[in-house]
């Protein structure tokens, strides 16, 4: 398992993504380290982990647009590419991961799959049982359309993944 986490970390950090490997009981501190400015979030389904009070749940459109940071759970992830899957339902993880400048993605180590094919198989099973939105995201949004590569086009300009090594 830790080999897969290491592989994920190596792949993800080849690009501009940052990765923090922690245990669940260190989550509050790890998140506090990266919270800067207004933050919005989607509920975290990991045992012993929850969003702190200063992260707004069910944000209004104004709060969403003004947020600097969006915290969402992600999974599965792809070790080969450093990609994470944003699954979204009524809680709005899709928009929360997309509108703010920084996406803080919280990932259980056990959800890291080796390849895209593995991740697609898992997403396929979830789609069959009702999942309607899954985005395999690798790094921040980007564009080369304005003369050189710029991170942060319509989506976040930075992505920070917190890996819960004991989840």
């Amino acid at each position: 398992m830790s080999g897969r986490v290491t592989r994920f970390e190596q792949s993800a950090t080849q690009g501009p993504t940052t990765v923090d490997r922690i245990h669940a009981d260190e989550f509050d501190d790890a998140l506090a380290d990266v919270l800067e400015g207004p933050a919005v979030g989607a509920p975290l389904p990991f045992e012993g982990v929850s969003l702190p009070q200063d992260v707004t749940r069910n944000p209004t459109p104004r709060e969403l647009r003004n947020a600097r940071i969006g915290v969402t759970p992600v999974g599965p992830a792809v070790a080969d590419l450093g990609s994470v899957v944003v699954r979204s339902g009524a809680e709005g993880a899709e928009q929360i991961s997309l509108y703010p400048d920084t996406h803080v993605a919280v990932l259980a180590a056990s959800d890291i799959q080796p390849t895209i094919a593995d991740a697609i198989t898992e997403i396929g099973a979830r789609v069959a049982s009702g999942l309607t939105s899954a985005v395999l995201a690798t790094g921040p949004s980007g564009t080369g359309d304005m003369g050189s590569v710029v991170y942060g086009a319509h989506g976040p300009s930075s992505v920070h993944v917190i890996v819960l090594e004991d989840r």
Binding site: T60, P61, R62, L64, R65, L81, S83, S88, G89, A90, G92, A93, E94, Q95, I116, I123, V127, G130, L131, T132, S133, A134, V135, L136, A137, T138, G139, P140, S141, G142, G155
Partner: peptide
Amino acid sequence: VTAYLSLFTPPVETPAIDFEHP
């Protein structure tokens, strides 16, 4: 890989955002 490989199975459950009522 591109930044996003999106798999939407619409109509999606994710709520629309009504910016007219911010």
